[in-house]
Design a protein around this nucleic acid. Sequence first.
DNA 1: CGTCCGATTTGATCCATGTCAACTATGTAC
DNA 2: GTACATAGTTGACATGGATCAAATCGGACG
Lengths: 249, 249
Amino acid sequence: MAQAIPFRQASPLKASCHQCSLSNLCLPLAIEENDLDRLEDIVQQGRIFNRGEHIFDQSTPYRSCFAVKSGSIKTSIITENGEEQVTGFFMPGELVGLDSIGSEHYACTAKALERTSVCEFPMEKLEELTGKLPELQHHMYHLMSQEIQNSHQLAMLLSKNTAEERIAALLLSLSSRFQRRRMSPTNFSLPMARNDIANFLGLAVETVSRVFTRFQNQGIIKARGREVELLDIEALQMVSREFSRQCNS
Amino acid sequence: MAQAIPFRQASPLKASCHQCSLSNLCLPLAIEENDLDRLEDIVQQGRIFNRGEHIFDQSTPYRSCFAVKSGSIKTSIITENGEEQVTGFFMPGELVGLDSIGSEHYACTAKALERTSVCEFPMEKLEELTGKLPELQHHMYHLMSQEIQNSHQLAMLLSKNTAEERIAALLLSLSSRFQRRRMSPTNFSLPMARNDIANFLGLAVETVSRVFTRFQNQGIIKARGREVELLDIEALQMVSREFSRQCNS
DNA sequence: CGTCCGATTTGATCCATGTCAACTATGTAC
DNA sequence: GTACATAGTTGACATGGATCAAATCGGACG
């Protein structure tokens, strides 16, 4: 139940970053075509996790960061008094585990929200490689700093915005992230439960639910369970007045 | 009023990281004695800013990150609709500007809270250097990831904790940061205004004020203006039940 | 197809904190 | 020293969202 079964070890072990459809979102985007092999040498591709399985656990020795290939992941931290705080949702092309790079242990737990495949980058080797490829190093810095900015953005959302604004911002963030992957920005299904949304946004589940129905009554969205359709993106941007850069992850 | 006057260009221009009392908190801690010169080659030491002066401005092209030598700095971001969100406070030995590394522009504005001296690390050169010194690179990763963790910690504080808990956590964070510098962990003066505290913690100024007096009435702290004395640290840790790792910046 | 359990929704009530307003203290300029 | 501005405190009141409770939905499984 908790074991990831590597499952037909992805056809050729090295399905290769060259052909990966996400290469323009993921690490390869920072790498020259001819250096790409060096990244492929260290990456372990196509590990698969079922819904609910942990990709890594908080306080466990840090080994790798992971790129989402398909599916989605949620990260969360558990406090001393046992409360959970969801710190981010990660979609294909995004990197998980940046918040612990350079640390001894994972700072959070990463859990598959659905059947999810990831590429694993052993950090030791990745650090070695970034030492040799300035472009890659720069990109890592960039990714990490964006993670900081996202988190600040989230903090801001939490401290200054109403429930409606927070939820609008989240929907818009998801929308633009789907769009980046050339999927519909208006029609998608939420990878996470209401509970996770509530936790992430610092709200009670009941409030999330109420806001969803309110938005629906106003004709801004249509939602049935996790299926969501954004009917009026501009209205959403209005609500989330801060035009939601990304409240995300 | 807005110009930083370099002010007697710190005695010898290179006061040197070797003798800096903060070298065990700052970047040098990751560097071998004999490589330290290479860091000194790129750092510009001892720039001084008066209270209220900007070290750098949001949306300005990114050039450098800065280490606080003395004094203190607050960083904040301004949203499209003109609201300010304080994202962190930085004390001696801490690095400012990590949230923009690898980006084209500064993601926030950094402002001196009092007369403050900083060391400037031009990022271009620093990236070059981290490419050559694996230890330093690792340390940069570590610092950045900690920044992410701190920010997550802050988000958590904002989304799950009461006003009292937030303020207790902040006081404890400051306390431990003073202690690291071998200053009194119980007797210090707050570098920032109530307003900044309120903004940072997502509260109204009035609430901050009220909590301070409440703590005072309970004999947990003594506060007169910015002078603070923590009378009962354990009580504070009790209040901030999550034993406040660091809620800080 | 019915059962069960978790997820989601809806309703009623309460409270922590925001907001507005007034007052006080502190500091700075003349 | 006086005056004005800025920062901090205190009080009264309003409210968004939490909490508690209960109903409904939906999917997994036999």
